[in-house]
């Protein structure tokens, strides 16, 4: 879902850059010199894993592929602020080294694939801090992941419309319909894959995931 170079107008990418810079600033301030030591390697490898997972495009519908965003599972496992920092780092490497996503569109891409899904992921984080996590958490998590993808897809279309990057003959409702329809299917895959990864990481790295939880989501583990 990376917005490429040349599709956003200066007001659109400028305001998104401002919003995302502020979000990253707040995120850094919230963890400044408070980050639990066990979270450092976790955020490093989760970033590497989400970068790698984004390279795996899976087929959806005819002639279309999708790939994980990963911001949602980062929000669940790391909380919103750290998730946003990790997602922003991934997107910077993708834009500067792999020509994936426009450089001027970085702020928009951080907002769409970082801020939005990380906040939704963080909203269901508490469900996973319980000792026994049941099917309820799985279902709520999948639904929240789908909503995150659809919200991001909607914002992309709004930004493209604001930038006059869509032909005048295309109505906003039509553009949203096309974009959100395909992203509904991508979102379902995102949700299922996120639950699988979250289950594995919570089962094996519970202490790191919920360490110092007062600062990263408001929940305590014992």
């Amino acid at each position: 879902m990376h917005i490429a170079s040349g599709f956003l107008s200066p007001p659109a990418w400028g305001s998104m850059a401002a919003v995302s810079t502020a979000a990253i600033g707040v995120s850094v301030a919230m963890h400044w010199r408070r980050l639990d030591e066990r979270k450092v390697p976790l955020m490093g490898v989760m970033g590497a894993f989400v970068f790698a997972a984004q390279m795996v495009n899976f087929p959806v519908l005819a002639g279309t592929s999708g790939h994980l965003g990963g911001g949602f599972l980062l929000g669940v496992l790391l909380g919103a602020p750290l998730g946003i920092i990790v997602m922003a780092s991934i997107l910077v490497v993708q834009a500067l080294v792999f020509q994936d996503g426009g450089i001027e569109a970085l702020g928009a891409n951080v907002f769409v694939m970082g801020v939005i899904p990380c906040l939704l992921g963080a909203a269901v984080r508490r469900l996973w801090s319980r000792r026994n996590v049941g099917l309820f958490a799985d279902i709520v998590t999948v639904v929240a992941a789908i909503l995150g993808v659809l919200a991001g897809a909607t914002v992309v279309i709004l930004l493209l419309t604001w930038s006059r990057s869509l032909p005048g003959s295309v109505t906003l409702a039509h553009a949203l319909g096309v974009m959100d329809f395909v992203h509904l299917f991508i979102g379902i895959v995102e949700g299922l894959a996120s639950v699988a990864v979250i289950r594995f990481v919570v089962a094996t790295r519970r202490e790191a995931v919920f360490a110092g939880a007062a600062l990263s989501g408001g929940e305590a583990i014992r």
Partner: peptide
């Protein structure tokens, strides 16, 4: 991907602004 396909289907696959 989903966004690229959407842009193609809507006839909006070409950049219209100066990018970096």
């Amino acid at each position: 991907d989903g966004l690229e396909k959407t842009q193609e289907d809507l006839g909006a696959a070409q950049p219209v602004h100066e990018g970096l």
